[in-house]
């Protein structure tokens, strides 16, 4: 098993005819992922071709899902139109919408997240690297790659990884792979203040996944999502967890609003989050080079 997506998950790509979407659709096809449809309004009926594979393009998400059996969307739509693309996934009752787009207005995401309540579709992101469930082929090929992560750095195995940051996720994954420790599923939940799925949501899924034996959770300054997850881990998680928090040297006040401190409280800083991680029994990596080793100190694999 794995979480959220499996090797045979059927993927549609919204924005497949744009440069960014096309590039990563090709990389996912190369990795062996089941990219079965593209969606670009007005280009329905065209075909996206790569390496002998033909991917039909549809005008709407609902039509693409109905015709191809796609259950998950990778969203590469430009920021002004991205929230609309997300809402279209909810309307089509997809299992999962993964929004890669960076720079979506906060107000659009506030509305989209509100509209998600009561719908069956889960949203990952936005402003995220996506999800990878590694395959069992050469350099993990044959897996499900949704988004922009490099596929080849993965190895199929039993560690779940959740992070806000793309490159820090790759760093952790590569450290694991170099030590012969594979991953069950790696989820980038995105760096925006409003996102569809939290650290805690992913931790709960990994905790319930029989294939996942251990977890790496990567966070950063701002908000209290990591703290919320850490407290739940202490109370409920059955599996060993290692963690890292980025931003110990970030200047205070650069991104936090004046009154934001009232809402966030004193648990916003890296030092505060690290302290709570330790109190919750999470093995904390002292540096980003130490993420895999921090896990291996408490889990022999």
């Amino acid at each position: 098993m794995s979480i959220l997506v499996k090797e045979d998950t059927r993927i549609l790509v919204q924005g497949i005819t744009g440069d960014f979407g096309a590039r990563h659709a090709r990389l996912s096809l190369d990795y062996g992922s089941q990219v079965v449809a593209g969606v670009t309004p007005g280009k329905g009926g065209q075909v996206f071709e790569h390496a002998g594979k033909k991917v039909p393009i549809f005008n709407t998400v609902a039509e693409a899902a109905k015709q191809t059996g796609a259950t998950v969307s990778a969203i590469f739509v430009p920021p002004p139109f991205a929230a609309d693309a997300i809402l279209e996934c909810f309307d089509a009752d997809l299992d999962l919408a993964v929004a890669i787009t960076e720079g979506i207005p906060v107000r659009d995401m506030v509305r989209a997240k509100r509209a998600m309540a009561g719908r069956r579709t889960r949203l990952i992101g936005p402003n995220c690297p996506g999800i990878v469930t590694p395959g069992r082929g050469d350099k993990s090929s044959g897996g499900c790659r949704i988004g922009i992560a490099p596929g080849y750095i993965h190895l199929r195995g039993n560690v779940g990884v959740v992070s806000r940051s793309g490159t820090l996720t790759y760093e952790a994954v590569w450290q694991l792979t170099c030590r012969g420790k594979g991953q069950s599923t790696c989820v980038g939940i995105g760096g925006d203040p409003v996102n569809g799925t939290s650290h805690l949501d992913v931790i709960k899924l990994l905790n319930d996944d029989p294939e996942t034996d251990a977890i790496i959770m990567i966070g950063e300054i701002g908000g209290n999502a990591e703290v919320e997850a850490a407290r739940w881990i202490k109370a409920h998680c059955k599996k060993p967890v290692a963690g890292f928090i980025a931003g110990a040297t970030a200047p205070a006040g650069r991104r936090m609003g004046h009154a934001g401190a009232v809402i966030g409280g004193a648990e916003d800083t890296a030092a505060a989050k690290i302290k709570i991680f330790e109190e919750c029994g999470i093995s904390v990596a002292a540096t980003p080079s130490d993420m895999a080793d921090a896990l291996l100190r408490i889990w022999k694999g």
């Binding site: 992070s163 806000r164 940051s165 793309g166 490159t167 820090l168 996720t169 760093e171 760096g191 990567i218 950063e220 300054i221 890292f244 980025a246 931003g247 110990a248 040297t249 970030a250 890296a270 002292a286 540096t287 980003p288 080079s289």
Partner: peptide, 17 residues
């Protein structure tokens, strides 16, 4: 000089570490 915000932030951290 780093690619990615999370990696950039943690590169600052590791320099200090």
């Amino acid at each position: 000089l780093v690619n990615g915000a999370g990696l950039a932030m943690s590169t600052m951290d590791i320099i200090q570490h």
